[in-house]
Write a protein that binds this DNA or RNA. Sequence first.
DNA 1: CTGAAAGCGCTTACAG
DNA 2: CTGAAAGCGCTTACAG
Lengths: 339, 339
Amino acid sequence: MVTITDVARAAGVSRSTASYAFSGRRTISTVVRDRVAAAAHDLGYTPNAGARALKTSRTHVIGLLAQFLPDEFAPAMLQYMLGVSDTARDLGYDILLAIDDDGVGALRRLTSSRMVDGVVLLNVAEDDPRLPALRAAHQPGALVGLPRDCRGVDVFDLDFAEAGRLMVDRLVRQGHREILLVSQSEDVVARGGAYVWRHQEGALERAARHGVQLTCVFGASAQPEIGHQLDRLLTDHPGVTALMLNNEAAAAALPGVLGGRGLRVPEDLSVVGRYSRELAETFALPFSAVESAPDVLGRMAVEQLVRRIERRGPDEPHTVRLVAPTLVDRGSIGPPPTP
Amino acid sequence: MVTITDVARAAGVSRSTASYAFSGRRTISTVVRDRVAAAAHDLGYTPNAGARALKTSRTHVIGLLAQFLPDEFAPAMLQYMLGVSDTARDLGYDILLAIDDDGVGALRRLTSSRMVDGVVLLNVAEDDPRLPALRAAHQPGALVGLPRDCRGVDVFDLDFAEAGRLMVDRLVRQGHREILLVSQSEDVVARGGAYVWRHQEGALERAARHGVQLTCVFGASAQPEIGHQLDRLLTDHPGVTALMLNNEAAAAALPGVLGGRGLRVPEDLSVVGRYSRELAETFALPFSAVESAPDVLGRMAVEQLVRRIERRGPDEPHTVRLVAPTLVDRGSIGPPPTP
DNA sequence: CTGAAAGCGCTTACAG
DNA sequence: CTGAAAGCGCTTACAG
């Protein structure tokens, strides 16, 4: 293994000079600098990350704590991971990926052994058990998902309440008076997946204001159950003219269900979902949808985390940023059918 | 930050004794051992990973080099990642995730800085540019995907040729004489995705032996193109009674296409795919399929990699393991319709 | 059964 | 503009 000592010897300088030549933290004559660079190149020198971390207390690694829960849609999780990973790389950080079932243990392991400079937590629940462990750690953390207590962490999430309002407003403006909202599974709510009820409350508030009927149900998260359930719901609610989906699995199952019932969108039924552009493309989801913006959220979380790790300027106060929802029109919202 | 020096002082022993008490690499009286353990617990001591790595030249981290290429199905990649990650954790390793576009650069960065003890390469192509970089590295590597040159690495992949044979045999046994195979995109082949033609060749060999007609096409990898393409293919090949899919996007699109044409499976058309059980569940894919076993392949790659990292026994020769395909029956293969 | 010391490969004050 | 030295937190020969 080639070390900085080898480079220094080859360049005929001391180790400290070689180190400064790389870091630029003090002025080095161009002659010497070039000699060091040439020696490093010839020998194929790369600094030892462990040694550097030991000395500087900085690893340039970010811990990514994801969870693949049985009642959530795995491909959607992947979107967040890619956003986080890409941004980290752009900023010079690598990603240590922890998807243990034991999220708290993973968080402790990474932080207490100083393997990471900070962590991003995905899929944060209302009372996420990882938060106390994060607050006890010496590294900063950024969350995707809104917990009850946001102290000491930076928080990023879609504004789900606003998304609920937006979806209802849009349907009502088209003339719909009887709407069905299929949210994610009740298990998600039970686990503290606050976004489900934040979205639902926003929707209910607007429905009440407009005086329209909004029926809310929790949908299954797995196939084929969710498909059967959607089919049953459409049978049980014949007056419904618009469907709101806050459930990726439901959006994936719906085209088959509609085909089976011979229903056209939007002539017979208007549909609006909540998922990312990327997911829409992968699964050819043909419905207008609120963009869930996983890439944006992942990017924002990492950018803020890195800012905090590198402490530019004085300690900023911690932030909570709810991203405003936008509706991507795919032509699935129209006026209700004339009876 | 609490160090082993703090623990040693609190326990009233030397640092070396504290270290040995943890590692068990020499006999320590139970009294002392307990005192050290208690002190460590009280102080909340965790060894500093960087310091340990510097001393031992072992990080207990595995690099996972994945690539999310536009013409491959991202959710399928995720399956491999989960298999790798779970197994690594079971064996006491963490995962450094690199999904750079520049796979060669990522590989060099992780290995030359000694951030990892070994690497797993996913999605390995026929002439994968990462392989020379891997051979130049000091760490061992395990591949998922079969390259032309397997020297110096351990290789794991599904036996795609056998999968092609298996699928044809099965359909022919049911009486099919005119079969259509939709493989992944030609771009995948151009990039050296050898599994596409290995599968196709296996299928063609068997079709020739049985004297049945097998039409091979490359399918688009994105929605909705692949759906339109399947529809057109069914129109253009009215005599086809069975469909083979080596293309996840095609499998995802097919139910919609069949619904649109009013075709029932297997009464009107037999279908056999190639994808994992997990994917079948997530997307409610109703077709019998050769299990692509991403979890098994990920597990085997990591187990072999760790064995090599930890050098149990003498240097074993490098291995190439092609996993035998198995067909998961979902009832989509029947006799051809009687004309 | 235990301790004092060396050293892993870096970076950075201290000194010139 | 450069060098010699200390030290980050560990592990492990060496010595008792």
